[in-house]
């Protein structure tokens, strides 16, 4: 019954990445709460992890760690290193954005993107 879906299976990682990006962006566009918005930004960012790891994947290949076996064909360590730095930067940038939200709340008394108007001098 599911046989006809099998050719679509290789598209799954790209579809997952695009879906995460899309739903995250949709939620950012319609968000009514800045903390929620930052959570959605993390979802968008998760799509880049999926994309990078999927691009570096190789069927049946082990991790690029050659501690207990000789170097052979393995999945791509370059993309794994990129994802690693991506995650750490994502966490610190999230903290920076949350600090901005705290400031906004203190100064304007609201954290609803709809109710924040551009600053006037």
């Amino acid at each position: 019954m599911t046989g006809f879906l099998l050719p679509l299976l290789p598209l799954l990682p790209w579809a997952v990445a695009a879906w995460l990006f899309g739903v995250g962006l949709y939620a950012i566009v319609t968000s009514r709460h800045y903390v929620h918005l930052i959570g959605c930004l993390s979802v968008v960012q998760a799509s880049t992890y999926v994309l990078l790891l999927a691009a570096g994947y190789r069927h049946g290949a082990p991790a690029p760690i050659f501690y207990s076996r000789p170097p052979t064909l393995a999945v791509d360590p370059v993309l794994q290193a990129l994802v690693l730095t991506d995650i750490v930067i994502g966490a610190t940038v999230t903290a920076l954005l949350l600090a901005l939200v705290l400031q906004l709340h203190k100064r304007r008394g609201t954290i609803d993107p709809e109710r924040v108007r551009p600053m006037r001098r």
Partner: peptide, 8 residues
């Protein structure tokens, strides 16, 4: 998927 060329 899973059969990319990964030269680097």
């Amino acid at each position: 998927f899973g059969a990319h060329p990964l030269p680097y």
